[in-house]
Amino acid sequence: MSSSQILKGILEGCLLSIIGKGETYGYEMIEKLNEYGFNMVREGSIYPLLLRMKKEGLVVTSQKQLPSGGPKRKYYSLTRKGEEELAAFKEKWGSLSKSVDRLLEEEG
């Protein structure tokens, strides 16, 4: 597994978590990721992931008219399957990060 694949898996988990906190759209997801310090994520890279997550039935989208007028905006929300995937990610990440932390602490 290449490092970019690991990163993609983590990014997918983070997107699930952000969408799980409430319906949101692409640019807002990036802003939230940045708030948490994910500035290594190239903004455009979320869209191929979102396409795949939609194909796999983890998220659904809906078009909403903006109050300011203009074109409609695409909002994402989690499906039941997406919620399950998020729970699985939390569990996997919890044990992975604990292991990595434990290993690295020994070095210090």
């Binding site: 759209y25 692409g26 640019y27 903004e43 455009g44 869209y47 074109p71 905006r73 695409k74």
Partner: peptide, 14 residues
């Protein structure tokens, strides 16, 4: 058209 308009929206804000 769906992905184009989504990227259009993102690029406008960016």
């Amino acid at each position: 058209e769906s992905i184009i308009s989504e990227l259009n929206d993102h690029l406008l804000q960016a």
